[in-house]
Simulated assay, not measured.
Amino acid sequence: MGGKRRGVLLAALVGAVVAFALGYLYWYGFRAPGEAVKPEVVGVELSWGGVNDSVTEVLARVVVYNPNPFQIEVKRVTFDLYMNGLRVGSGECGGYALAGRGNTTITLRGFLDNEKIPEWFVSHVSRGERTEIRVSGVAVIDLKLAEASYPFDKEFTFKTDLLSGLNVTEPQEVSLGPLVLFLKELETRWGSVGPEGVEVNHKLVLFNPQPLPIPLPVIEYKVYVNGVEVGEGSTRRIVVLSPGKDTVLLFTTSLNPSFLSRWWVTHIRNGERTRLVVEAYSTVEVAGEKYSFEVYRLEKLIETNILGGLRP
């Protein structure tokens, strides 16, 4: 009897082992347990949330596939946001459950420090208007008997061409009271770039069709982004426009990076749209009368999609 009972128990044990093995292969296939447990990020989408004077909310919509037949608890996710190597923001979230053998969408929430924007902008311009964005973090998963940490890292690039619309190649008429000048050319390009400021260099060509020289005391100019004044300058010397000739003026606009945090808030609130305005004006004296006039006024709509380059 004893031997028969042992045989029955042994058969039951073998059957259980076989059943477990078959079940394991059914669920996991011929893979290692650690590999089978690891979830996979199959989709990532970043977007901006709320924004105030101090911070900008960053929302990450992440689609995670769990290959296991059971639910997995995500205890926490921490991540950092870098722009050209500068850590500009971070976030920490937790309390997510990944459904077994399926996709689960989770939303992560972090904040970008607006005070980092001036330093980032300097790096963006110095790299040819190019920014490398990196999202780096770690997810901690509860495996009941232990915790497992899964690091993740995503990179993408975005570029701009901010000065492309600030050039004049076709002559434009400029009125000086009873007189007329012609703005023949305006060339704009980046100058020196550093922590103390960003410079924009201008080459201006004015043609004087009048039979007499016209003294131009000073040309003053200002730069606005969404109504925020971020730069100004002047020629700082008297220029005489010779009759019937072109006069070339070289001058520089200095952008104050400290104002860029205010601009950033308006840019994000406007759906990443900025209206850039450059104004130049002067005052001349003709026959004893002083006339203030606009040398030129240029407008450009700048649209960006900073977070749109991220893909799984």
Rank of each mutant, 00 (worst) to 15 (best):
I141A: 13
L241T: 06
F111W: 13
E303V: 15
N305F: 00
L86Y: 03
R269H: 02
G288T: 02
A19N: 01
K300S: 15
P33M: 12
G100K: 01
A16W: 09
Y65L: 10
S54R: 14
D246W: 01
L298N: 04
E272S: 11
D153H: 14
S234E: 13
N114T: 10
V55T: 15
A36F: 15
G100F: 06
E132R: 11
A60W: 07
L250H: 14
L276D: 09
K38L: 15
E229F: 09
G244V: 11
V74E: 09
P118V: 00
F30I: 14
G165L: 13
V228L: 11
E155Y: 03
I219N: 06
E299K: 11
V205P: 05
S192W: 06
Q71D: 15
T266R: 09
V8F: 03
Y65R: 13
S282F: 01
F111L: 13
G49A: 07
L310V: 15
R262Y: 01
L260F: 06
N270H: 12
F158T: 04
N256H: 07
E196D: 15
G89C: 09
L276Y: 12
G271Y: 01
A287E: 12
T252A: 05
D113G: 00
L145Q: 09
V168A: 04
N305P: 01
T188Y: 02
K154S: 07
T283L: 02
F251H: 10
G91K: 02
V248Y: 01
R76I: 01
A60P: 02
P67N: 10
T252C: 02
I117L: 09
Y281K: 11
N201R: 11
K159W: 11
E132N: 10
M1I: 14
F182C: 07
G227T: 13
G34H: 14
V239Q: 04
E185K: 15
V62N: 04
L108P: 03
E170Y: 09
S292D: 11
L9V: 13
E289L: 09
V239K: 06
P217R: 00
S164P: 02
Y291F: 12
G244R: 10
L112E: 06
A12M: 12
V140K: 00
L163R: 02
V286M: 01
T107C: 05
A19M: 08
P33N: 10
L10V: 11
A99R: 15
